[in-house]
Design a protein around this nucleic acid. Structure first.
Lengths: 251, 251
DNA sequence: CCAACCTAACTGTGATCACAGATCACGACA
DNA sequence: TGTCGTGATCTGTGATCACAGTTAGGTTGG
């Protein structure tokens, strides 16, 4: 089992019942945490995928993942089934489920789709972002800068901050369905985009990401949709170019 | 059980083995049909959703669907799990799985996403469509016209031909991942878009769809990407307007 | 006549078992 | 030494069972 899957922390399922001494106590307690085990496993695997903690071609076993997570095989089946429906995992006909290995053509198509969809999201975000939205993006940008320019670079921190920065931006667009679409794209791109980070984070040194983020923030502050799209497109394109040159893409 | 789910036709799983008397007989037989029951059920439910045969708010029961399809509950669970991951179905916390009921805001966001994504697909298709691609779209257009102008109108046929026409167009773009994205959008929009068709197909009478399709074909033939996008956007917008006016969208 | 309770039926979730098929390592044969 | 068969082992798939929670309908008490 090479998959770095961690067992759940298993909090005591939240103390949802602590009654407020305010009259409308029953209105306060809103829909206590109702998450099935299957959803939890799905979230766990999704996080691993976007963070590049699962390498392209890496094989997973339902039983092993189940054992690693301390659950039965059933919730893992559900999670894998969902992710396979999104092409974030693939189940080979006879045997095993693995992280898809993208061909160069597939990676380029994925990048084009990201340019279209995330570019649109950036435009929309630039138009509608509130000061609070901009503040959130700014704080993630600071975290990214800090992680990227540390010595040695904090790859995991940079990947996480980059993800938070982008999705804080997209959430400013106020379109939940759009975010779902982008999450699916990241699920496919994550393994190939971030796999190299964990070993050799030299890509961060170039600073092209930090530059693009800075331009993005300027565009947000001036509500310049076209500039926001351009900055984001550069960010995506720079990363894609790096992967095409150094990454391991199949024929 | 109100869901019009039909049992599988269950063909004898194809005679994949008939050996060719040509030397390279083993090269001929390529990857026999490998489809799990879960995938089959998924496809069945997807078809019902995009065709509007399942109404928004309609409740499904795993056991009943399983019984109607002549399979165990297990493949249905997998199918519902996948569709729920795409928000094409929703599982209510305590009870039952149902077809989502879109709010007006959700429907409008969905329409905007369709304009962005399918508009891009139309542009790309106009640039890359081969004569064969155009011929395919043309034949589906003919089928749509015939179904729509029949008396009484053949609603089911029109819905199917419209779907085939659009996806023939999108396939001309040559981007599989893009098609998946669009399929997911149609999965969400299908129930609300096509639900009224089955009872009162008067929307077809307006002829706005046929007009948009004609303009789309002209744009394809002249490889005019901008015109193709414009025609498709009109098609989508016209249908959306009709739904907003007559459809049953929740608050 | 209405409201509250209560019971029986049904829901999705999760676990466990059975099974066909694929993989891989080992060993026999050429 | 190289190649092919073969069996042990592991894979996902599907079926069946158990269970907690919810719903709906009938019944009782006011």
């Amino acid at each position: 089992m090479t998959a770095p899957v961690q067992p759940f922390s298993m909090p005591p399922e939240a103390a949802a019942g602590t009654p407020d001494h305010d009259g409308s106590a029953l209105d306060r307690i809103g829909a206590i945490q109702r998450e099935t085990l299957g959803e939890r496993v799905t979230g766990e695997l999704r996080a691993l995928l976007v963070a590049g903690r699962l390498a392209p071609g890496e094989k997973l076993s339902l039983r092993r993942v189940a054992e690693a997570l301390g659950v039965s095989m059933m919730p893992v089946r559900e999670a894998v089934s969902r992710l396979a429906a999104d092409r974030a995992l693939e189940v080979l006909p006879g045997r095993a489920v693995r992280v898809p290995v993208l061909t160069l053509a597939q990676f380029r198509e994925l990048t084009r789709l990201r340019l279209v969809v995330e570019g649109f999201a950036a435009e929309e975000a630039a138009r509608k972002a509130t000061p609070q939205d901009i503040a959130r993006v700014t704080s993630y940008d600071a975290a990214f800068r800090k992680a990227a320019s540390a010595d040695p670079p904090d790859s995991a921190g940079a990947v996480a901050a980059n993800r938070d920065l982008h999705f804080a931006l997209y959430e400013a667009a106020g379109m939940p369905g759009l975010i779902e679409m982008i999450e699916r794209l990241w699920l496919k791109a994550g393994p190939i985009l971030n796999i190299d980070m964990r070993d050799e984070p030299r890509r961060l040194k170039g600073g092209s990401a930090m530059q693009a983020h800075a331009r993005l923030l300027d565009a947000l502050r001036s509500q310049d949709a076209a500039a926001a799209r351009a900055a984001l497109e550069d960010d995506i394109a720079a990363a894609a170019t790096h992967i095409e040159e150094t990454g391991q893409l199949s024929a």
